[in-house]
Computed example of a mutant assay.
Amino acid sequence: MHISKALASALLVASSVTTACASQQVSQFADSPRQLVLEDYFLGETAAYGVFEDRFGKVRRQFKVDITGTLDGDRLTLTEKFKYDDGERDTRIWEIDVLGGGAYRGTAGDVPGLAEGQVSGNAFNWKYKVDLKVGDSIWNVGFDDWMYLMDDDVLINRAYVTRYGIEIGQVTIAFRKPAGR
């Protein structure tokens, strides 16, 4: 079997990125001076700004998200209203169960199955699948989100997006709570 140098190089990069993500453990953040509690951080109003980059690093979409979080017992509901730079708008509503011990499980309308996550220190790792509209098709893609609480008001999210186990892009989002919350 003969493959081009470019394809071989791309496969090497994809495999090293996948290996890099897999080698990081949320527990390594346990001793952080900041402690992330999702239901505290996302309670009320939060604004977020993000970009989606394809696997070659080209920015394909930019967006803003207005998020409203409510807590009812051990269930955190996040209503996310997306405004994309091309004018498209979308809404996702997460229902997230607080399981204790830093564990979370949730679902949303475009998330088949369950999302599962774990907090340790200032970091949260959240894994799930999404039925993503791409043109006239629906792609089932995996998300491996890593969120880091930078200070009381700023949370940074880096998500690695895969399809059939191959990274197809990355999403970077900066969340910010309003001043004086």
Score class of each variant (00 low, 15 high):
residue 49 Y to R: 10
residue 136 D to I: 00
residue 79 T to E: 14
residue 80 E to R: 14
residue 22 A to M: 02
residue 67 I to W: 08
residue 26 V to N: 08
residue 155 L to E: 01
residue 176 R to D: 01
residue 145 D to G: 02
residue 51 V to M: 11
residue 74 D to F: 05
residue 70 T to P: 00
residue 22 A to L: 06
residue 140 N to L: 04
residue 81 K to T: 00
residue 50 G to P: 12
residue 180 G to Y: 04
residue 86 D to M: 14
residue 151 D to A: 03
residue 79 T to S: 13
residue 163 R to T: 03
residue 70 T to F: 00
residue 39 E to R: 09
residue 118 Q to F: 05
residue 80 E to L: 04
residue 83 K to T: 14
residue 11 L to N: 07
residue 76 L to N: 08
residue 59 V to F: 12
residue 110 D to E: 05
residue 178 P to G: 07
residue 161 V to D: 03
residue 151 D to H: 12
residue 48 A to S: 13
residue 161 V to G: 04
residue 94 W to F: 05
residue 116 E to Y: 10
residue 94 W to H: 06
residue 86 D to E: 06
residue 128 Y to D: 03
residue 7 L to N: 04
residue 162 T to Y: 10
residue 65 V to R: 13
residue 176 R to L: 15
residue 75 R to D: 08
residue 69 G to H: 03
residue 12 L to V: 09
residue 117 G to N: 07
residue 72 D to A: 15
residue 68 T to L: 02
residue 175 F to D: 01
residue 104 Y to D: 04
residue 143 F to L: 09
residue 7 L to H: 07
residue 104 Y to K: 06
residue 1 M to I: 00
residue 75 R to C: 10
residue 164 Y to I: 04
residue 173 I to P: 01
residue 100 G to I: 13
residue 64 K to G: 01
residue 37 V to G: 03
residue 25 Q to L: 06
residue 171 V to P: 03
residue 121 G to H: 13
residue 151 D to P: 11
residue 150 M to H: 08
residue 171 V to C: 08
residue 75 R to T: 15
residue 13 V to Q: 06
residue 46 T to R: 06
residue 45 E to W: 00
residue 1 M to S: 13
residue 71 L to T: 09
residue 151 D to W: 05
residue 16 S to C: 05
residue 134 V to N: 08
residue 156 I to M: 11
residue 105 R to F: 09
residue 79 T to L: 10
residue 40 D to L: 09
residue 49 Y to H: 08
residue 168 I to N: 01
residue 120 S to C: 11
residue 75 R to S: 11
residue 64 K to S: 04
residue 24 Q to F: 10
residue 24 Q to D: 06
residue 53 E to R: 12
residue 134 V to F: 14
residue 42 F to G: 05
residue 96 I to T: 09
residue 46 T to N: 04
residue 125 N to R: 15
residue 53 E to M: 12
residue 137 S to V: 01
residue 100 G to W: 14
residue 163 R to H: 14
residue 33 P to V: 14
residue 122 N to H: 15
residue 111 V to P: 00
residue 60 R to G: 09
residue 8 A to S: 06
residue 142 G to L: 06
residue 63 F to R: 02
residue 143 F to P: 03
residue 159 A to H: 08
residue 24 Q to H: 12
residue 118 Q to P: 02
residue 105 R to T: 12
residue 95 E to P: 00
residue 77 T to K: 07
residue 1 M to P: 03
residue 25 Q to H: 14
residue 155 L to S: 01
residue 75 R to L: 07
residue 83 K to I: 05
residue 108 A to G: 13
residue 16 S to W: 07
residue 58 K to Y: 07
residue 175 F to E: 02
residue 55 R to S: 10
residue 121 G to L: 10
